[in-house]
Amino acid sequence: MKIDDLEQMESEDLSTLSSAERRRFLKIGLAVTGMYLGGSILSLISVKNAHAAGVVPEAGTYPYNPHYSMVLREHLCIDCERCKEACVKTNHVPSYGFRTTILEKRRSLGEDKSETIFVPVLCNHCNRPPCVRVCPTTATWKDEKTGIVVMDPSRCIGCKTCMAACPYNARYFKEETRAVDKCDFCLQSRLSKGETNPACVEACPADVRVFGNLADPKSRVFQLVHAPDTMVWVLRPETGAVPNVFYINS
């Protein structure tokens, strides 16, 4: 190669690198470091961008469509447990386990009086599900279409890390399938067969459980969590899991 040719060639020194390219390179480096640190860096990058200004994501920022979620109108729950019965029947839940249950708390009304509040709980199908992050064999993941946290029993090695990681006690080990079992909003038993509601929602006589597509402004779940003068809360927000099960009292 002649010296003239060489002069005509594009310089390959750092000055010609666009900053975008630099950033890209740095990102590769970070990604590699992240891999080597065993996900401790990767884990900081959520499955999907989580918008957590308040517990209800801004309209239009739902990662999925349909973005399935449930709103629980807490004060209406009377612990008749029809939801539990329906769930057990629909999803073959063994007697030692549960996919959904009802908790009970007491709130003082002053003096020696108090009221009972029943709290239905189930898998929160989090936007940043800790259970999904920790599974060594990707036996559990967020369904790409619906955002539902699903399980493939045949991949489960039974290390129970997902059970330890779940902030909501939503998982249990099912001996029959030799795998961890959990609520999937009845995706397998009902939604995939054309039903629009999970069994628990259909069974509830008090309209406590409202299920639907949060990404659809016309859906009831959307309207409930975006209603004016409504206090919306989630369980254990401090864990950063960004749950999709919301609680209201109106």
């Binding site: 004060h75 009377i78 612990d79 447990e81 009970e104 009972t116 029943f118």
Partner: peptide, 12 residues
């Protein structure tokens, strides 16, 4: 109103 005053639930 006050559903759980009478509906003591399966737990209750």
């Amino acid at each position: 109103t006050r559903c759980t005053a009478c509906h003591i639930g399966v737990r209750g």
